[in-house]
Amino acid sequence: MLVKQLSIFLENRSGRLEEITGILERNDINIRALSLADTSDFGILRLIVNDPDKAEKVLKKNLIAVSINNVVAVVVPDKPGGLHSILIPLRDSGINIEYMYAFLAKHKDDAVIIFRFENPESAVEVLQNAGVTLISSDELLKM
């Protein structure tokens, strides 16, 4: 139930993000979710794309620092307390969230949130045991 996410190192300079999206466009890679974290000097762009292995290959060819990590796509009820209900089993099991961000499309009527955990495998187990719906890569890309 793990989803591959690309992380890209970006220097803070104008036009850099556009270069990355240009490379993805030319290689026919579609972005399904993204998050940009930044510090005063650099940023990290995190992407979920339709073909992560190809994206990694073409970005590396363009001398861009990129890595692939496993994240978990979690279905969150789109109502007050929705996210809260997901976080409870995680807290109870002592699982730390490194970061999280929302997926662009909706899953039926629910929201999808991407979670990065220190230990994604045990997080998957905890969430599944708590009855939380997770989305596989294949399903995610079809949304």
Binding site: F9, T39, F42, A65, S67
Partner: peptide, 15 residues
């Protein structure tokens, strides 16, 4: 330079 070897997707590790 941020090489493959030191790149982490976690900002705190790079910092």
């Amino acid at each position: 330079e941020v090489t493959e070897d030191i790149f982490s997707d976690e900002i705190k590790k790079l910092e």
